[in-house]
Nucleic acid binder design. Structure first.
Lengths: 254, 254
DNA sequence: CGGAGGATTGACCCGTTTCAACTACCGTGG
DNA sequence: CCACGGTAGTTGAAACGGGTCAATCCTCCG
C-alpha cells in the first residue's frame, strides 16, 4: 500500500543546525515526497505540513517503535528501514499482520482505543517521522483535502486487511508465497527498485507467521518455485525470474 | 464492533408524513441511539446530525446493498437486519470478511478507492440508514469531536480485521468456531439480547467462508461442541450452555 | 405433499505441520 | 585471519487436521 500523507522529518540532533529554510524544505526534499504528498494539495500549504511532523526517531534493528498496550500518541511514517507489526492473543499466540517499508504508515491501530493494539518492530535499523495525533486532527480540520486523504489511507488499510484475510482463508501455501512475493516486488518497484531482485528483510518464520504457514513450508515452497524456474533463492536474496508465471499461480484462485 | 456514529433514519415512503418535529426526533428515538450517538457530543448538535442522514433504504434478503466495483457514495448503518460482506479475488474465489448487525457500519472500504471493494449482501430483510460521504466530510469538519469519533471507527475496523487475521492464521477449527460464537454472543448481548441463545442468520457455508473452513468442518465442530456439552445446536438455533468453557477453548491459544 | 436447499455424518485423501537432523552463514573474539 | 558458536535455513519422514466427495436427513415453503 502506498501511503499518501504529508510527512517529512525534522533534522536529528546530529544533523546540521535547523536553519529555518532547511526546515521549510524538509518535506520538499524528502525522498518520500511522491509517496507522502497528498494529491491536489497546494504547494503553498507545504509549510503547514512542515509543522506537522514532530520529529524524526531512530529505531534500532530488533527494537520496538511501539508495543501493544502503549498509550497512543501519534502516527509514524517509515522514512527508512523496515518494520513488522505483530498482534498477540491473550494465550500468547502471535501473528505478523504486516510488513512496512519506506513511506508506509504505522500506528493507525492506536486511534480507536487510545492504545496500540500491536507491536511495531524494526527489522533493520530504521528511521520514522513522528506526527502527534492532536496535530494531525488540527491540520486535517484546517485543510479538508487532507482530511479526505487521511480517510482514504485508513480505508485502504481496511481493504488491504481484507485481502490478507482472503489469502489466509482461501489460498494454498504456494499461492500465499507467490502473492507475498509479488506484493513485495510491486511495493519495491513503486519505490524505484527493481521488481525482480529483492532482499528479504525478514526471516522465514516471520514470513510464515504473516502467511499463516510454518517456516518449513515457506522454505519448501521457495525451493519448489526455484525448482520450477520461477525464482532463484539464495538465503534472503531473491530473484523473481518469471513474474507472469508467479501471477498466474496466484490468480488461479478458483 | 460496536459502531458509534450519529446515524438515524428519515421516515420511509410508507411512514407517517415527515412533520418537522418527527424528523427532528428521528435520531433521538432511534433504537440504535446508544450505539450511534457519539460520546461527548452535545445534545444541541442533534439537529445537525439529523440532516446528515440522507435516507433509509430497504434491502431484501439476498439482495446487495452494494457490490464490489460500485462507485462509492457513502456509508450505511444497519438499522435492522443482518448483512455479510464478501470479497472476491480475480480468480473467482470469494471470502466472507464479516457479518454486520444493527448499529454497525458498512461501506468503509469504499472511501479509499472511490469504489467499493466488497459486496454487502443482506442475510435477511434489512434496513439501513444512508449517509452521503460528502455530508459526512462537511459535518466532521464542523464538529471536530465527530471527526475524532469517525477516525476511531475506522481504526477499530482495522484492529478488528487484525483479530480476524490472527484467527485465520493461527487457530484450529474448534478455536475459530468458538471465537466466532463468542463474538456473536457478545455483540448480541450489547444489543440487549440474551448472550446464550442466538439464531444464526447465515448458512454453515457462510460461517465456513468467514472462518476459512469448509462447511462440513463447521457442522462437525458444532456437533463436537454439542457432544461435549458446551452448546446445543438445532439447525440455526443455538444455545451456548457454557460460555466460560467456550472462552477457554479460544484462549488456549498458546 | 413434494421438492430444493441446508445440514449432518462417514470415509478417504492430501496438504501442511511437526519433529528431527543437517547445513549454511554471519558475527565475534581469540 | 581463522575458529567457533549461534542463528537461520533446508530437507526428510511421519502424523494429523481439515478438505473433498458422497450419501442421507431435515425442514421449510410453495
Amino acid at each position: 500500500m502506498a501511503v499518501i500523507l504529508p510527512f517529512s522529518p525534522k533534522p536529528l540532533p546530529g544533523d546540521p543546525p535547523p536553519s529555518l529554510p532547511a526546515l521549510r524544505e524538509a518535506c520538499a526534499n524528502c525522498q518520500l515526497r511522491e509517496l507522502c504528498l497528498p494529491l491536489g494539495l497546494a504547494e503553498a500549504d507545504l509549510d503547514r505540513l512542515e509543522g506537522l511532523v514532530g520529529g524524526r526517531r531512530k529505531v534500532a534493528r530488533g527494537q520496538a517503535l511501539f508495543q501493544s498496550g502503549d498509550s497512543f500518541r501519534g502516527l509514524y511514517a517509515v522514512r527508512s528501514g523496515f518494520f513488522k507489526t505483530v498482534v498477540a492473543s491473550e494465550g500468547g499466540r502471535a501473528q505478523v499482520t504486516g510488513f512496512q517499508m519506506a513511506g508506509e504508515l504505522l500506528g493507525l491501530d492506536g486511534i480507536g482505543g487510545d492504545r496500540h493494539a500491536c507491536d511495531a518492530i524494526a527489522l533493520e535499523d530504521s528511521q520514522v517521522c513522528e506526527i502527534a495525533y492532536a496535530d494531525l486532527e488540527r491540520i486535517t480540520h484546517d485543510l479538508p483535502p487532507l482530511a479526505h486523504q487521511f480517510h482514504r489511507i485508513l480505508s485502504r488499510e481496511i481493504v488491504r486487511d481484507q485481502g490478507v484475510m482472503l489469502m489466509l482463508g482461501r489460498m494454498s501455501a504456494e499461492e500465499r508465497v507467490a502473492a507475498f512475493l509479488l506484493n513485495l516486488s510491486q511495493r519495491l518497484q513503486a519505490r524505484g527498485y527493481a521488481a525482480q531482485a529483492l532482499r528479504l528483510r525478514m526471516t522465514r518464520e516471520e514470513i510464515g507467521s504473516y502467511l499463516g504457514l510454518s517456516l518449513e513450508t515457506v522454505s519448501r515452497t521457495f525451493s519448489k518455485l526455484q525448482d520450477e524456474g520461477l525464482l532463484r533463492v539464495q538465503q534472503r536474496e531473491l530473484k523473481l525470474l518469471d513474474l507472469a508465471a508467479l501471477r498466474q499461480r496466484v490468480e488461479a484462485c478458483g
